[in-house]
Each structure stands twice: as C-alpha cells, then as structure tokens.
Measured scan of single mutants.
Amino acid sequence: GATAVSEWTEYKTADGKTYYYNNRTLESTWEKPQELK
C-alpha cells in the first residue's frame, strides 16, 4: 500500500545538523519522524 515516508524530506543545516520537513503538512522537526523509524 501507500506509505507516508515520501512526505518527509531530510535536510542538513549549514552547520551540519539534520532536520526533517513534511511536504504535506509543511511541518519541520529535529526529531526523526515516526514514519521514518
């Protein structure tokens, strides 16, 4: 079936920290989303 993983994109900030952005909800988070675990 369809999965929600594709909504999240992993980015890195200029200082090398990783964060996650959800293209559907426009939410961003420092925590790894449940969908990616």
Rank of each mutant, 00 (worst) to 15 (best):
L36S: 07
E35P: 05
G16F: 02
V5I: 14
N23F: 09
G1H: 14
K32N: 04
D15M: 04
P33N: 03
L26F: 14
W8I: 01
Y20W: 15
E35C: 15
K17G: 05
E31S: 06
K12Q: 10
K32V: 10
Y20N: 00
K37S: 15
A2Q: 14
T18V: 11
T18N: 04
Y21M: 07
Q34I: 11
E10S: 05
G1A: 14
T18R: 05
E10N: 02
L26R: 13
E35M: 05
L36C: 11
T25R: 01
N22Q: 00
S6L: 08
K32G: 03
W8Q: 00
A4W: 12
Y21A: 03
E7N: 06
T29Q: 11
T29S: 10
N23E: 09
T9V: 15
E35V: 06
A4D: 11
Y20D: 00
G1S: 13
T3I: 14
V5P: 13
L26Y: 13
R24K: 12
G16W: 01
E31G: 04
K32Y: 05
G1R: 07
D15F: 05
T13D: 12
T25F: 02
T25N: 02
E31P: 02
N23K: 11
A4N: 12
W8T: 00
T3R: 05
E10V: 12
K32Q: 08
K37N: 14
T18H: 04
L36K: 04
T25V: 02
K32A: 07
E10M: 09
T3V: 11
T9A: 10
E7K: 03
L36P: 05
E27S: 04
T13E: 03
N23G: 05
L36Q: 05
E27M: 07
Q34F: 11
K37G: 15
Y20R: 01
T29I: 07
Q34P: 15
K17V: 09
K12S: 07
A4E: 12
E27A: 04
Y21G: 01
S6Y: 09
S28P: 03
A2G: 13
D15S: 09
W8A: 00
T25K: 01
T3H: 13
T13W: 03
E31A: 06
A14W: 08
T18K: 06
S28D: 03
T13A: 06
E7F: 08
Y20I: 00
E35G: 09
L36R: 03
K32R: 10
S6V: 09
A2D: 13
P33E: 02
D15R: 04
G16L: 01
N22Y: 01
R24C: 14
S28R: 13
E31M: 06
V5F: 14
E31L: 08
E35L: 05
T3W: 09
K32F: 05
K17E: 08
G16K: 01
K17A: 06
E10Y: 04
T9M: 13
G1I: 14
T3D: 14
T29D: 02
Y21N: 01
T9G: 06
L26K: 15
A14H: 10
R24I: 15
E31Y: 07
E7A: 06
E27V: 08
T9E: 09
T29M: 07
K32S: 04
N22W: 01
N22S: 03
Y11C: 15
P33L: 02
E27K: 07
V5T: 12
E35K: 04
E35T: 05
N23L: 08
N23H: 15
N23V: 10
S6F: 09
A4Q: 13
